[in-house]
Design a protein around this nucleic acid. Sequence first.
DNA 1: CAATTCCCGATAGGATCAATAGACAATAAG
DNA 2: CTTATTGTCTATTGATCCTATCGGGAATTG
Lengths: 149, 149
Amino acid sequence: MLSQKAKYALKALLILSERPADVPVQVVELAEEGNLPRKFLELIMLELKKHGMVHSQRGKHGGYMLAALPSEITFGDVVRAMDGPLAPIPCASLTAYRKCADCTNEKTCAVRIMMRRVRDAASEILDNTYLSNMSSDGVEALSDQLVSA
Amino acid sequence: MLSQKAKYALKALLILSERPADVPVQVVELAEEGNLPRKFLELIMLELKKHGMVHSQRGKHGGYMLAALPSEITFGDVVRAMDGPLAPIPCASLTAYRKCADCTNEKTCAVRIMMRRVRDAASEILDNTYLSNMSSDGVEALSDQLVSA
DNA sequence: CAATTCCCGATAGGATCAATAGACAATAAG
DNA sequence: CTTATTGTCTATTGATCCTATCGGGAATTG
């Protein structure tokens, strides 16, 4: 499941992607344009900042700016930052592997093998799509995307 | 995330897949062989029965049996029965679509488009792999599987 | 009838999630 | 320098779900 947090984060970052890179956008503005709960979004932006994905400026005319180009930030980056590993089960995760308590022979565990495949498929999609691929300009070129994917 | 429930269900069903189809297997036996919590597994087997995936027999020498051939039950069936839709977000689900409260224009929502792709990829994997593909016999033929997948 | 085994309801602790409130800190503008 | 603005941070809340267990009831076999 994708959390609300991750969904809101993605929406906010996509909004930022369509703005000039050097003009800070306030949380209130992000919340209104994205139809997102303001206070909750504050937390989220803060967390994105801690992950180095956005910069912030305080005081009047302050706000948030992307810390990298929209063509450098993937959906996978954002989802992992907010929700943790893509793998449906820890024993199938690359970035946060953890053994199942109940597992006896991991090498042949069908569940793990299958969930690893699911993880790989999700990664293939999310780690190869950048914010720039999906901003309103980008979405127009979507039919091309779908063919190549 | 795959719940413990779904994981246990899959493990139990895989055990049943390797037994003669007409001999009931008791919950205790499934729990021991699979290293699963017995009481919890009782609930799970019951739920699997309600979903028509297993039959049960009461009384002495009772237990559970698969309601279909291992070559007829997919991982997707089991995961959906236990955890609900595969889609990471309801608005991207085929089987249990629900609109996001905050969404304004669904057609162009990047989050939805991406999550739909993830859903499709997971479905492609889980709905095309059967219990029989992953029972201990099946796992030997795995390298073939991987090539074709 | 007695033993066995599934069936079922209740429940409990814990974790996580979604969201808000309210005070504090930095910055810009006048 | 003062004031308004806006990000920063901590705490807290309610809700929901997850995992798991307990204990007894109902069916079936021998």
